[in-house]
Design a protein around this nucleic acid. Structure first.
Length: 275
DNA sequence: CTTTACGCCTGACGGC
DNA sequence: TGCCGTCAGGCGTAAA
């Protein structure tokens, strides 16, 4: 399940394959994704890829000669999406939705069994797109600090886990890494966001940065179906401290890890180490 | 403004 | 072996 590290890993695999290449055409086999693939994506044909960026969990393909690019593609991997570089003559597999066919015979092929992913078109500035406009800071930039978390949490009565998974607060923290970061910083996932001190938010922000950076270094987490652009899994699952470890001993104190549903999502935590 | 529930979708899995 | 219910999860959206 792609969270920020998985999307970033995909981006890094895509970049050398796409940048500087011309998109020959966009071949849509099955437009049924989260939103139907819009016809505008055909405008990519004949344009040169000038960059592969990531904002939150969205991949942005910059097209055209302008700098900065003023139009391009936007891809979301959803729950089960993956993009891989392959020969465009390769036979499509089940759930292959579209190809970005390149001028060298290769393509970026998007596969998504659960169809929560998306392929969209943007023009103007990508950051102004409806889906990106109101997003919070990137967790791996200097804009993201414990102070920001603390300030924005003062009126939040909900669980801190939901708070850090809110894309308006900080982007890219999905269910897996939220549990991990809260464990690393000793904070109980169900604690009210407004009842956490500035010092503890500093620790939490550090843990979020740390776990995301380490997961990127491991190529992401493959629990069920995530694959990178080379069709390979990520290896961070072996480093998970609490996620999907219900009833197994805490690595710090050996207390059995608990699972609790918070905001309709499974959360994992150590009842002794996290308060 | 925040908070909550829902729905989209397939595949894996458990129970019978 | 098959059938069916449940769960997983990102995140936009509607409603409270």
């Amino acid at each position: 399940m792609p969270e920020l590290p998985e999307v970033e890993t995909t981006r890094r695999g895509l970049e050398p394959a796409l940048e500087g290449r011309v998109i020959a055409r966009v071949l849509v086999r099955n437009p049924a994704l989260r939103w139907p693939v819009p016809p505008e994506v055909a405008l990519a044909a004949g344009q040169t890829v000038s960059g592969c960026r990531r904002r939150a969990k969205y991949l942005l393909i910059d097209l055209g000669d302008r700098n900065p690019a003023d139009n391009g593609l936007m891809i979301h991997l959803g729950m089960s999406g993956s993009l891989r570089i392959c020969d465009s003559a390769d036979a499509p597999r089940k759930h292959d939705h579209f190809d970005l066919v390149l001028d060298n015979g290769f393509c970026a092929r998007f596969n998504d069994p659960r169809r929560f992913g998306a392929l969209l078109w943007w023009r103007g500035e990508a950051e102004n797109h409806q889906l990106l406009r109101d997003l919070g800071p990137e967790p791996l930039t200097d804009d993201f600090t414990g102070e920001v978390l603390w300030r924005r949490s003062r009126n939040r009565k909900g669980a801190v886990k939901n708070f850090i998974m809110d894309g308006k607060i900080v982007v890219g923290v999905g269910n897996i890494y939220a549990s991990e970061a809260l464990y690393m910083s000793g904070i109980h996932p169900a604690r009210q966001a407004r009842r956490i001190s500035a010092a503890r938010y500093e620790a939490l922000a550090g843990a979020i940065r740390d776990v995301l950076a380490r997961a990127i270094r491991s190529g992401g987490t493959t629990l069920r179906d995530y694959l990178n652009s080379a069709g390979r899994p990520g290896y961070f699952a072996r480093d998970l401290l609490v996620y999907e470890r219900e009833k197994q001993p805490c690595f710090q104190c050996a207390t059995p890890i608990r699972r609790q549903v918070i905001g309709q999502r499974s959360s994992y935590y150590c009842p002794r180490c996290q308060r």
